[in-house]
Design a protein around this nucleic acid. Structure first.
Lengths: 356, 356
DNA sequence: CGCTGGAACTAAACCGAGTAAGCGAGCCAG
DNA sequence: CTGGCTCGCTTACTCGGTTTAGTTCCAGCG
């Protein structure tokens, strides 16, 4: 089986390759009749333009690169990423863009891949996750001139387009809720402290706790279930143990719930638990977890839209404020930054007033 | 910043483009000295061959395609896939292959993508998951002549290379274990019954239960936590409820554990639970789940190796029996089929003799 | 009637690699 | 001394699109 080329179509239609190219790409230079004829033949032959040839001819590759930090414990990856990818794909594939996935162990390797993708002109743009407070990737990407969208706070994006939901707002909502229930000792099991969004959450957490007169502790972890369980054990073993715990991801919250139950604590009577991000499992646990819920899929859709816009394919609604349901970009961020809806608290059975 | 091309290198080295190409690809036709000089220049310039140009020149694309069935409930995807991808990547990236990921809603769409990838010569081969009993994708791929590896039972692979672990063996192990504990009514919450591996598990399950004189029920679901919970509720509400449950994935097992506890049943005293596949959460639940454990990452590594071999890059150990620690390919399957180690039972706190 | 202009198309260059064919130099054998 | 071979390299063409620079033809207009 041989793939049909434009030359085949040209021969069949009795025109030149150029005419076929114009016809297929909707460019002027061919009469409507000829265009119709060419399109019909292309369709009949099942023609699809060879992506290598178009890429070589300078048409930007309809491929988007995503480098995923390999999870520290190499175990499973958080549900967050799967949902994000799912959302990215939803948008990308409707526009016939492909997603090139690459797992990386550390930032240097990741930058290496960006360099490589660029020099091989493999991708037209990239998505950057897990932004650090001072992130070398930003500089490297700007230097390469590779279109990029940062999934994280604009403050650390260093001028690259970014999409993010304001974790500070969500953190305040969670703490205010717990404080209103009567909690006065709240601990937080956070992710890696070098991550930009962790820093933002930490700042918001300490800030709002101070304002409300609540004692606040943050224990940084690597986001893994194991570390989450360990941290929980340590916090609950202390003399003045906290009455409420906020976990920076759902995986650790689930692990923490189990630890609490093993220690003989009843949730929510003896201990309240809040999870950040809300995978289906949170709803199915006993008790179901109160969680900070956001539409991660939509987050991915918006990120993809923003990147496509940055790549020049601004096609219609993709440009500017791509997020249909996003908040206004009120804070003085440059155009190209999109604020998604922040996560909101979904109270469930794992939170209640502390027992006296 | 402009990408260096072989023409740049040629000019700098004072030779022709052809010589550079020969030198870079380790082909004869240039003297060792000239080769050295060219390589040094290429290195200094940070040269990387434009992937589009090589693809156009007929060098097979170092890209592997993976179409993932979009999860039925579009919620999160099973940990299985993330771990599998992680393993695939581990092998692919050491050989500088890229992974093209595509989410698809149904089989027809998936076949469409294979066609497209083929006619655009985007990928050099594909991996096929979630094999059906009679799977149209197999025929389509053979027709296209696109190298492919099936992640599933050879019986349904229709002659394509396949990799798989014998789920029948594992199922027998689990049931024999439960029967030895004294269970006489075992139910199984399975995945989609049209999937080939579900069929194999079901056959093994009914077979071994009949042999051991154990009553067996299989309830098919869509693998989602919700369906798993529903099925569990129904099974446990019946008059002669089973004393042990086997779940076809870990997600449903977790949901099922929660349901049992809500119904006031104590696990494992009143009900034993076995999960198929063993994500970190299984270990952290209370009680920790007895699970059928396998090294999914290694599974992915072997799948990638097999595909690379099928694509002609047999480089060394990739060919033949790619799985270092795999069982021998004893059963009469053709070369190109690899048997990975079957899942083995890891007894934990969720299984015990049934209460009288 | 002749000139201009635009529509519709063709021919050929081009992108950046890979590669078959050819060619000169050096070497060896006859 | 010459024919033939090999080595080392160049030339030129290929892949399949895109794109630029023409070319042809016809309509419109002074």
């Amino acid at each position: 089986m041989k793939r049909p080329t434009i030359a085949d179509i040209a021969k069949e239609a009795g025109v030149s390759k150029g005419a076929v190219s114009y016809a297929l790409n909707g460019q002027p230079g061919v009469s409507p009749q000829t265009r119709q004829r060419i399109l019909a033949i292309a369709d009949r032959l099942g023609f699809r333009a060879n992506s290598a040839a178009r890429a070589l001819a300078g048409v930007p590759a309809k491929v988007v690169g995503l480098a995923l930090p390999r999870p520290p414990a190499t175990l499973g990856v958080e549900p967050f990423f799967m949902e994000l990818i799912s959302g990215l794909e939803a948008e990308l594939s409707t526009r016939s863009y492909a997603l090139l996935l690459q797992m990386v162990a550390h930032q240097d390797e990741e930058i290496g891949f960006y360099r490589r993708w660029w020099s091989e002109s493999r991708v037209g743009g990239v998505l950057v996750c897990d932004l650090r407070v001072h992130d070398e990737r930003v500089g490297a990407l700007r230097e390469l001139g590779l279109p990029a969208v940062v999934i994280g706070p604009p403050s650390a994006a260093g001028g690259l387009a970014s999409i993010w939901s304001d974790d500070g707002v969500s953190m305040v909502e969670a703490v205010e809720y717990l404080a209103a229930l009567g909690h006065r000792r709240i601990a937080r099991i956070s992710g890696m402290s070098e991550l930009a969004h962790t820093a933002i959450r930490t700042e918001a957490f300490t800030g709002v706790c101070a304002r409300l007169g609540v004692s606040a502790v943050t224990v940084p972890t690597d986001y893994s279930a194991e570390h989450g369980a360990d941290a929980t054990r340590r916090l609950l073993g202390a003399d003045d143990r906290p009455t409420a715990l906020i976990y920076d991801n759902d995986i650790m919250a689930i692990a923490g719930l189990t630890v609490a139950q093993e220690l003989g604590l009843s949730v929510p009577a003896d201990l309240s638990i809040v999870a950040w991000d809300d995978s289906p499992i949170c709803r199915l646990l006993h008790p179901p977890l109160t969680a900070l819920t956001r539409d991660i899929g939509a987050y991915g859709v918006h990120a993809a839209r923003l990147l496509l816009a940055a790549m020049g394919n601004g096609a219609g609604n993709g440009a500017g404020n791509g997020a249909g349901d996003s908040a206004d970009g009120s804070a003085g961020d440059r155009p190209g930054d999109v604020h998604d809806e922040p996560a909101h608290l979904t109270p469930r059975g794992s939170t209640a007033p502390p027992s006296r």
